[in-house]
Each structure stands twice: as structure tokens, then as C-alpha cells.
């Protein structure tokens, strides 16, 4: 094969694969700029709120065909903060999050349905306390742009909401203590393009 024909072939391969590489970008969840909060009824008096402070994960984001995207997130169960150390310990106990046995909560997407120009339903398996259940996240893609002070770093951001039932995951004591059991989840997540 001559030099020219080899170059032509290489160029053709590059052209052929370039759109694929651009279409599905890979991102790492930016832990310091991610807020995974939740709220649930506290016996009808008010809504109790909490946040998981350690959230990591990977996102594959295909802007041309969002249904080909995927997300995988790991939450450190012991990073729970409900504004009370005593309550955090109770919530981490065997009746609720059971962090000794199940230190991680994970979410892995299984399918995505685009619902609007910037919105989608992301379905996936939430695994908590050893139980996996499919949940649906209502996701909005907010923005993507380089950092103003470092244009080589591109950041994208999403907002997502979901409602889960704690008893689906075996947290039956929620009901006994007048908590939930419906839990509203709100996620604001920023991710750095790799």
C-alpha cells in the first residue's frame, strides 16, 4: 500500500469515527458541586430534609441521541447529614440505611426517554440496603460551557427529581416513626468532561 493510500485510509477512518467520539462525551461527577438532597414528611408536622455529601460517578452524555446516554452514580451512605448528629446515627443504623452492612447506595441507568429539548426521563436501578428497584429520574440538562478561568475544562450540569418509597427498600421503620415513607429526591449535579 502506498503512502498516499494509507494516509487516505487513515483520514477516512478518522472522519468516520470522529462524529461518534464527539457524540457521546464522558463526564465525571464533580463531587464538590453536587447536591443530592431529599425530604420526607415528619409525621405531618413538617418535611425533614437531608443531604448526602459524598456523591461520585460517571456520565456518558450523547447530545445527538440522548437515549444512548448513561449514568452511574455511587453515594457514600455514611455521608448523610440531616442537621442532627444523633439522627444521622439513627438513620445510619440497621433500621434505616444500615451503613455497616451497606456502605454504598448506587444508581445505574438502564434506559432513557427524551421528553423535551433539554429534558428526559432516566430510568435505572437504585440499589440501597441490598435491594434494587427501578426508579425514574426526571432530568433537565441545564447548561454546558468551559470554566471562565480554564477554558480547557468543560463542565455540564443537570437538575433531577424523583420520588421513591423507603419501604420498597425495606425501611419499614419509617412508617413506625411517622416518617415518609414517600421520599422526594432532588439532585443538582455538575460534571466535568473528561
Amino acid at each position: 500500500m502506498s503512502f498516499i493510500s494509507r494516509s487516505t485510509l487513515a483520514a477516512a477512518l478518522l472522519i468516520a469515527t470522529a462524529p461518534l467520539a464527539q457524540a457521546a462525551d464522558k463526564y465525571k461527577v464533580h463531587e464538590d458541586h453536587t447536591w443530592l438532597t431529599f425530604s420526607l414528611s415528619h409525621a405531618g408536622w413538617a418535611n425533614a430534609h437531608g443531604i448526602f455529601r459524598a456523591v461520585s460517578g460517571d456520565i456518558t452524555f450523547d447530545k445527538d441521541d440522548v437515549t444512548k446516554s448513561s449514568v452511574s452514580v455511587v453515594i457514600a451512605a455514611d455521608s448523610l447529614d440531616t442537621n442532627s448528629e444523633v439522627r444521622d446515627r439513627d438513620m445510619g443504623g440497621a433500621d434505616f440505611l444500615n451503613i455497616v452492612e451497606f456502605p454504598e447506595i448506587t444508581f445505574d441507568s438502564t434506559r432513557i426517554e427524551q421528553t423535551g429539548e433539554r429534558t428526559a426521563m432516566v430510568y435505572g436501578d437504585l440499589t440501597m440496603i441490598g435491594v434494587s428497584k427501578e426508579i425514574a429520574l426526571d432530568v433537565t440538562w441545564n447548561n454546558e460551557m468551559p470554566l471562565p478561568w480554564d477554558t480547557s475544562t468543560v463542565k455540564t450540569g443537570f437538575t433531577a427529581t424523583a420520588t421513591i418509597d423507603g419501604t420498597d427498600f425495606g425501611m419499614n421503620q419509617l412508617v413506625a416513626f411517622g416518617l415518609g415513607p414517600k421520599i422526594d429526591v432532588e439532585i443538582d449535579l455538575e460534571a466535568l468532561r473528561q
Binding site: 446515627r89 439513627d90 445510619g92 443504623g93 440497621a94 433500621d95 421503620q173 413506625a176 416513626f177
Partner: peptide, 8 residues
Amino acid sequence: GGFLGLGQ
């Protein structure tokens, strides 16, 4: 001690 269910 944070083990409400077993307490019951």
C-alpha cells in the same frame, strides 16, 4: 443506641 426496631 440507634437500634429502634430491635428496641421495640
